[in-house]
Design a protein around this nucleic acid. Structure first.
Lengths: 323, 323
DNA sequence: GCGGGCCATAACGGTTCGCTTATAGTGCGC
DNA sequence: GCGCACTATAAGCGAACCGTTATGGCCCGC
C-alpha cells in the first residue's frame, strides 16, 4: 500500500470511474487500474465491482475511500507543518480528557498563552488510558486529566483537586436529608456527560467504592447539558463541585448529601520523563501554580473567541503494532 | 515518503535512538538511517540532530513524529476496517456541525438506530463549509447542520426549523422592554459556544443582518456551558430557543425582545445526489419525519450510555490537491 | 448483433525502495 | 589521546512500484 495507490483509489471513489480518475490524475487508465489491483491484493477485497455503466463500491471499498481521503489529507498537512516549522513559533500539543476539555483547558490555556505569546496550541481529546501512548508516540507533549495507568518513562503529578458531589433538581425528595445511603437512590435516573459511558468513569468508580453495581446512565454530549437536564428534574448526577457552584447558589440545582460524598479526586498532568521540550515543561510547572488554579476555578465569561480553538477528538491506534 | 519510512521515523522519535529503533524493527541500523535520510531529502528538514549521547528532534521532526504516528495508526485502522467490512453490519458516517453534535445528533441517532438495529454510526464534527468536501471524498454519507454552500452533485434539503433568541440572566435591565434595538446592547458581553469563533456563525450572521459590526465574543467549549454563564449574569447570548425552553420556563434565563429576533433558521441534511447508500437514504428520509423532530425537540434524559458514542472532531484537508 | 465505452490483464522498462555489509565521521568519557 | 558508542554514507542487489502500449472481456444501447 502506497500513498499513490491510495490517492488513485480515492480519486476513483470520488469520481465513480477509473478512466475519469486516470484523466484527472494525468496518467493512463491501466496505471490507475494497476494501483487498484495492488490494493485489492493487499487488502483482499474487491473494493468495487462493475455495475452496468459504472461501478459500485463494496463495503470495504467505502471504508477504504474514507480512510484513503483521510490519510492523504494527513500527508498534506504533514508536509505543510514540517515546511512551516522552520523558524516558526513553537507548537504545544495537548492531550486532554473529555471533562478537562470542557471545563479546564480553555481557561488554563488562555492564562498560559498570555504568558507565552508566540505559541500555538493544539488539543486532542482522548481517554486517560491512551495518554501514555499519545505521549510515547510524540503525538502529545502534555496530557491533562485523570491519572493514567502508570507506565515507565511517563511522569505523572497531580495538579488540581476537585470534589464530586451528587446534585439533583430543586425540590428533590431527598433535599436536606443527611447521609443518604446510595441505595436510597435506587430507581433514580443517573445522568452523565460524554466520558460517562466507559467503565472507569467517575460514576463507575463512585458506585464501586460504595459496593453498589453501577446504574444504566443516560449520556449527554456534554457535562453542561447533563447539568441542565438535572436542573429540569430529569435525574441526578455526580457532578464536579466547582462547575455547578453558580447553580447551587441560585438554587437551580441542589446538592444531595449522599454517603461517600463529597468525594475528592485529582486531575493530573502527565509528560514524558525525559526529553521534555521547554514549552511543555513550562506548562507542566504552570498548571500547579495558584494562577492556573485561579483561572480554572473562577471560570470567567469564556475565553476571547479569537483565542479559542475547539479541541479535537481522536481515536488511538497504537502506531507500532502494524506490520 | 512511504509508510515504512514513516514507521521508521516514528520509532526513532519514540525511542530517541536510531540503533534502538533498528533493533525493535528487526532491521540493520543503516536501513533505518537510510529511511530517515530519504525523509530528510523529501521534507527538506534535518528532522533530528545529534546531541551528545543521543538525538534531539528539530521542530519539523517533532511535527513529523506526531503526524507519522497518526498516519501509521490510520493505516492500521484502515486494514482493520476493510478486513471487518466483509459481511458485517452497515456503517453510516455522519458529518455534523458543532451545534448539531451537541443538541441534535444524539437523540436523532438514538431514535434512528432503534429502527435500524444492525447499524454502526460514526460521527465527525466539522464546519458546514467542509460538508461538500467530506461527502465528495466519501468520508461522510450524510451531513447535518447549517446549509453548506451549494455545490454540484450535493443535495441539500432543510429538515428542521429552529429559532434564535437573545437570552440573558434573570433581572437583566432590559427584561420586558419591547423591540430593543441591537445597538442598545452595546457594551454587553456576548457569549458563544464552540462554533461561534468563525465568521459565518449564527452570531455573526445576526449582527450582519442588523447592520452592526460583530462583537468580540467570549467562547465556551460547549453551548450549554455558555447558557450556564449567561444564567450567572456573565453576558448575553444568541441561543437556540428549544435548547433553553426549560431555563426560560424556570426563570433561570430570560428572553430579551431584541429587534430582529426571533430569527428563524433551518438545519439541513446534505448528501450526494447520486450513488446514495440505502442507510444514508433512510436517514435522509427519516430526519424530516415528525418522529425525528419529536425526538430532537423534546430531548429526553439523554440517550442510554451504552448506545452513546461521542462525536469526533476533524479537520478537513482537501484530499486531492496534494501532489 | 455489433460497435463503443469501460475495466482488467499482460508485457516491459526505468526508478525507487528496502535491505544487506563495509566503512567513515563525530562526540563523550576515561 | 584513544577507545567506544552512535550515526551517516557507500556500494550492491532483489523486489516492488509506476508508468507506458497492446489486448481481451464485459455490458449497454442503437
Amino acid at each position: 500500500m502506497t500513498f499513490a495507490q491510495l490517492r488513485a483509489f480515492a480519486t476513483v471513489a470520488r469520481l465513480g470511474s477509473v478512466s475519469a480518475a486516470a484523466d484527472t490524475l494525468g496518467v493512463s487508465e491501466p496505471a490507475v487500474s494497476a494501483a487498484v489491483a495492488s490494493l485489492r491484493r493487499d487488502l483482499d477485497d474487491a473494493l468495487f465491482v462493475r455495475a452496468g455503466n459504472g461501478i459500485r463500491l463494496t463495503a470495504g471499498g467505502e471504508r477504504l475511500a474514507a480512510a484513503a481521503a483521510e490519510i492523504i489529507g494527513l500527508e498534506g498537512r504533514l508536509r505543510r507543518e514540517v515546511g512551516e516549522a522552520r523558524g516558526e513559533r513553537g507548537l504545544l500539543r495537548l492531550a486532554v480528557s473529555p471533562t478537562v476539555a470542557e471545563y479546564v483547558s480553555a481557561p488554563l490555556l488562555d492564562a498560559f498563552t498570555r504568558r507565552q505569546p508566540a505559541l500555538e496550541v493544539a488539543q486532542e481529546v482522548a481517554a486517560a488510558e491512551d495518554f501514555g501512548a499519545l505521549l510515547g508516540d510524540r503525538r502529545a507533549d502534555v496530557a491533562l486529566g485523570p491519572a493514567p495507568p502508570p507506565e515507565p518513562g511517563i511522569d505523572v503529578t497531580p495538579f488540581l483537586r476537585y470534589r464530586l458531589i451528587v446534585v439533583a433538581g430543586p425540590g428533590h425528595r431527598l433535599t436536606g436529608v443527611r447521609e443518604v445511603p446510595l441505595a436510597a437512590l435506587r430507581g433514580e435516573r443517573w445522568l452523565v456527560g460524554p466520558g460517562g459511558a466507559d467503565a472507569n468513569s467517575a460514576l463507575h468508580g463512585f458506585f464501586r467504592s460504595q459496593g453498589v453495581p453501577a446504574p444504566q446512565a443516560g449520556a449527554f454530549a456534554t457535562e453542561a447539558a447533563a447539568h441542565a437536564a438535572v436542573a429540569a428534574g430529569q435525574g441526578v448526577m455526580l457532578a464536579i463541585a466547582h462547575t455547578v457552584l453558580d447553580q447551587l447558589r441560585r438554587g437551580t440545582l441542589v446538592r444531595l448529601d449522599v454517603r461517600g460524598t463529597p468525594r475528592d479526586a485529582m486531575w493530573h498532568v502527565a509528560t514524558l520523563r525525559d526529553r521534555l521540550s521547554p514549552v511543555a515543561d513550562a506548562l507542566r510547572r504552570f498548571v500547579t501554580t495558584p494562577d492556573a488554579t485561579q483561572a480554572i476555578v473562577t471560570r470567567p465569561g469564556g475565553v476571547p473567541a479569537a483565542r479559542f480553538r475547539p479541541p479535537v477528538y481522536v481515536t488511538i491506534w497504537s502506531a507500532i503494532e502494524n506490520s
